[in-house]
Lab assay of single mutants.
Amino acid sequence: MSDQEAKPSTEDLGDKKEGEYIKLKVIGQDSSEIHFKVKMTTHLKKLKESYCQRQGVPMNSLRFLFEGQRIADNHTPKELGMEEEDVIEVYQEQTGGHSTV
Rank of each mutant, 00 (worst) to 15 (best):
Met1Val: 10
Met1Glu: 07
Met1Ala: 08
Met1Gly: 06
Ser2Lys: 11
Ser2Tyr: 12
Ser2Gln: 12
Ser2His: 13
Ser2Val: 14
Asp3Ala: 09
Asp3Gly: 11
Asp3Lys: 09
Asp3Asn: 10
Gln4Gly: 11
Gln4Thr: 14
Gln4His: 11
Gln4Pro: 11
Gln4Cys: 08
Glu5Arg: 12
Glu5Phe: 10
Glu5Ala: 13
Glu5Thr: 13
Glu5Cys: 00
Ala6Gln: 11
Ala6Arg: 11
Ala6Phe: 12
Ala6Trp: 13
Ala6Asp: 13
Lys7Met: 02
Lys7Trp: 07
Lys7Phe: 08
Lys7Thr: 11
Pro8Arg: 12
Pro8Ser: 11
Pro8Asn: 06
Pro8Val: 04
Ser9Ile: 08
Thr10Ser: 11
Thr10Pro: 11
Thr10Phe: 12
Thr10Tyr: 14
Thr10Asn: 14
Thr10Arg: 12
Glu11Gly: 15
Glu11Phe: 06
Asp12Tyr: 10
Asp12Arg: 13
Asp12Ala: 13
Asp12Thr: 03
Asp12Ser: 13
Leu13Lys: 13
Leu13Cys: 07
Leu13Asn: 11
Leu13Tyr: 12
Gly14Met: 08
Gly14Glu: 12
Asp15Pro: 12
Asp15Ile: 06
Asp15Gly: 12
Asp15Trp: 05
Asp15Asn: 13
Asp15His: 14
Asp15Leu: 10
Lys16Phe: 11
Lys16Pro: 12
Lys16Tyr: 10
Lys17Ala: 09
Lys17Thr: 15
Lys17Phe: 09
Lys17His: 10
Glu18Gly: 14
Glu18Ala: 11
Glu18Thr: 09
Glu18Trp: 13
Glu18Asn: 12
Gly19Met: 15
Gly19Trp: 08
Gly19Ala: 11
Glu20Ile: 12
Glu20Leu: 11
Glu20Ser: 14
Glu20His: 09
Glu20Phe: 12
Tyr21Arg: 09
Tyr21Thr: 14
Tyr21Gln: 14
Tyr21Met: 09
Ile22Cys: 15
Lys23Thr: 10
Lys23Pro: 01
Lys23Arg: 15
Lys23Ile: 13
Lys23Gln: 13
Leu24Pro: 01
Leu24Gly: 02
Leu24Ile: 07
Leu24Phe: 04
Lys25Ile: 08
Lys25Glu: 04
Lys25Pro: 04
Lys25Met: 03
Lys25Arg: 13
Val26Ile: 08
Val26Pro: 15
Val26Met: 03
Val26His: 00
Ile27Cys: 07
Ile27Asn: 09
Ile27Phe: 10
Gly28Tyr: 00
Gly28Val: 04
Gln29Lys: 15
Gln29Phe: 02
Gln29Thr: 05
Gln29Tyr: 07
Gln29Arg: 14
Asp30Val: 03
Asp30Glu: 08
Asp30Leu: 06
Ser31Arg: 14
Ser31Leu: 01
Ser31Ile: 08
Ser31Thr: 08
Ser31Trp: 15
Ser31Gln: 07
Ser32Met: 08
Ser32Thr: 08
Ser32Gln: 09
Ser32Trp: 06
Glu33Leu: 06
Glu33Asp: 04
Glu33Phe: 01
Glu33Ile: 14
Ile34Ala: 04
Ile34Met: 09
His35Ser: 08
His35Gln: 10
His35Met: 10
His35Arg: 12
Phe36Asn: 01
Phe36Ala: 04
Phe36Asp: 04
Phe36Ser: 03
Phe36Pro: 03
Lys37Ile: 02
Lys37Pro: 03
Lys37His: 04
Lys37Arg: 14
Lys37Ala: 13
Lys37Gln: 13
Lys37Met: 05
Lys37Trp: 07
Lys37Gly: 04
Val38Thr: 13
Val38Tyr: 08
Val38Glu: 01
Val38Met: 15
Val38Gln: 01
Lys39Asn: 08
Lys39Met: 00
Met40His: 15
Met40Phe: 05
Thr41Asn: 04
Thr41Trp: 02
Thr41Lys: 05
Thr41Phe: 00
Thr42Glu: 04
Thr42Val: 11
His43Asp: 12
His43Tyr: 09
His43Lys: 15
His43Glu: 13
Leu44Trp: 02
Leu44His: 02
Leu44Gly: 02
Leu44Lys: 03
Leu44Cys: 04
Leu44Gln: 03
Leu44Tyr: 05
Leu44Met: 14
Leu44Ile: 04
Lys45Ser: 10
Lys45Ala: 13
Lys45Val: 10
Lys46Arg: 13
Lys46Asn: 09
Leu47Pro: 03
Leu47Cys: 01
Leu47Asn: 02
Leu47Ala: 01
Lys48Thr: 00
Glu49Ile: 04
Glu49Asn: 03
Glu49Pro: 00
Glu49Ala: 14
Glu49Arg: 14
Ser50Ala: 13
Ser50Lys: 05
Tyr51Val: 06
Tyr51Asp: 03
Tyr51Cys: 03
Tyr51Ile: 05
Cys52Glu: 03
Cys52Thr: 02
Cys52Ser: 10
Gln53Met: 04
Arg54Met: 06
Arg54Ile: 06
Arg54Pro: 00
Arg54Asn: 01
Arg54His: 02
Arg54Asp: 04
Gln55Asn: 10
Gln55Arg: 15
Gln55Gly: 05
Gln55Ile: 15
Gly56Phe: 07
Gly56Lys: 01
Gly56Gln: 14
Val57Asn: 05
Val57Pro: 01
Val57Ala: 13
Val57Lys: 10
Val57Ser: 05
Pro58Lys: 12
Met59Glu: 11
Met59Pro: 11
Met59Ala: 09
Met59Phe: 14
Met59Arg: 11
Met59Ser: 07
Asn60Leu: 04
Asn60Ala: 06
Asn60Trp: 08
Asn60Gly: 14
Ser61Met: 07
Ser61Thr: 08
Leu62Lys: 06
Leu62Glu: 05
Arg63Pro: 00
Phe64Val: 02
Phe64Ala: 04
Phe64Trp: 04
Phe64Cys: 04
Phe64Arg: 03
Leu65His: 14
Leu65Ala: 03
Leu65Gln: 01
Phe66Glu: 04
Phe66Pro: 02
Phe66His: 13
Phe66Val: 02
Phe66Lys: 01
Phe66Ser: 02
Phe66Tyr: 13
Glu67Cys: 11
Glu67Phe: 15
Glu67Asp: 08
Glu67Ser: 04
Glu67Gln: 06
Gly68Ile: 00
Gly68Arg: 04
Gly68Phe: 01
Gly68Gln: 12
Gly68Leu: 04
Gln69Trp: 06
Gln69Ile: 04
Gln69Pro: 07
Gln69Glu: 15
Gln69Ala: 14
Arg70Ser: 15
Arg70Leu: 12
Arg70Met: 10
Ile71His: 00
Ile71Ser: 03
Ile71Tyr: 01
Ile71Glu: 01
Ala72Tyr: 13
Ala72Asn: 15
Ala72Thr: 15
Ala72Glu: 03
Ala72Ile: 15
Ala72Lys: 01
Asp73Ala: 00
Asp73Ile: 01
Asp73Ser: 00
Asn74Leu: 13
Asn74Val: 12
Asn74Met: 07
Asn74Gly: 14
His75Cys: 12
His75Phe: 05
His75Arg: 05
Thr76Leu: 01
Thr76Phe: 00
Pro77Leu: 01
Pro77Val: 01
Pro77Met: 01
Lys78Arg: 15
Lys78Asp: 14
Glu79Gly: 13
Glu79Gln: 07
Glu79Ser: 06
Leu80Asp: 04
Leu80Cys: 04
Leu80Asn: 00
Leu80Ala: 00
Leu80Trp: 02
Gly81Thr: 00
Gly81Glu: 13
Met82Phe: 02
Glu83Leu: 14
Glu83Phe: 05
Glu83Ile: 13
Glu83Lys: 15
Glu83Cys: 09
Glu83Arg: 13
Glu83Asp: 11
Glu84Phe: 13
Glu84Gln: 14
Glu85Phe: 15
Glu85Lys: 15
Glu85Trp: 15
Asp86Gln: 02
Asp86Trp: 00
Asp86Tyr: 06
Asp86His: 03
Val87His: 09
Val87Gly: 07
Val87Gln: 13
Val87Met: 14
Ile88Ser: 04
Ile88Phe: 03
Ile88Val: 14
Ile88Cys: 02
Glu89Ala: 07
Glu89Leu: 13
Glu89Ser: 11
Glu89Phe: 10
Glu89Asp: 09
Val90Cys: 12
Tyr91Val: 14
Gln92Glu: 08
Gln92Gly: 11
Gln92Ser: 13
Glu93Leu: 07
Glu93Trp: 15
Glu93Ser: 10
Glu93Ile: 03
Glu93Pro: 06
Gln94Pro: 08
Gln94Tyr: 12
Gln94Ala: 13
Thr95Ser: 10
Gly96Val: 00
Gly96Phe: 04
Gly96Ile: 01
Gly96Glu: 01
Gly97His: 00
Gly97Ala: 04
Gly97Pro: 00
Gly97Asn: 00
Gly97Phe: 06
Gly97Leu: 07
Gly97Tyr: 03
His98Leu: 09
His98Pro: 07
His98Phe: 10
His98Ser: 10
His98Val: 09
His98Met: 09
Ser99Val: 09
Ser99Lys: 08
Ser99His: 08
Ser99Phe: 08
Ser99Asp: 08
Thr100Trp: 07
Thr100Phe: 08
Thr100Gly: 09
Thr100Cys: 08
Thr100Lys: 08
Val101Leu: 10
Val101Gln: 07
Val101Lys: 07
